[in-house]
Write a protein that binds this DNA or RNA. Sequence first.
DNA 1: TGCATGGCGCCGG
DNA 2: ACCGGCGCCATGC
Length: 197
Amino acid sequence: MDCKKDGNLKKCNCTYLKLKEFGKSGIPSAIGTLYYVWPVKTDICETNLDNSIFFLSNSEKSFDFFTNFLANKFPHCPIIDMSSPEIEKELAGYLSGKTRGISLEPVYLYGTDFEKKIWETARKIPYGNVVSYKELAQKAGYPNAFRAAGTALGNNPLMLVVPCHRVIRSNGEIGYFGGGEEVKLMLLDLEQPQQQE
DNA sequence: TGCATGGCGCCGG
DNA sequence: ACCGGCGCCATGC
């Protein structure tokens, strides 16, 4: 439980979270089934986990990887099938274009300091805007680590919540996207409803 | 420890 | 506009 005592948990920042139960679920959407994991129950802890989310992806493969990670690192925490109306409402609002963004608080259960810095910096990109991988790295304080920044985005456990789809290449090319290039284009288009010729 | 691997960027041809 | 090549840097094995 105490991350600092276990070398295998060095990538875990959960020391202050007293988790009791994870909820996992998946809902169909325009960009494929969206799988998510969230905190169902926690002990009294220093952090308010209301409106929090641990994982979100349209990739079943990465979902399996994440739940396996949880089962290994949090053996005392049952992972139950339970949906979150709050989370699904946020996702529906965003994907329908009714809300400009998603009001869910990311909780990173793994990730290096560099990755978290990149993810948090990406999260500040306003709805409808795009930046290059280079600009993202600069904003995060690593002006020359634009390539590593791309790799870090590839490890983003919270699609949409951490809007890595708003990061494109300096030359204007769309760049890679773990959730699928067509999905990246779809999301960028969703955020530009007012554009017309 | 060292080396290969990436969601990249930039310069030449 | 389209490459190949090289540099860049955090990670993983």
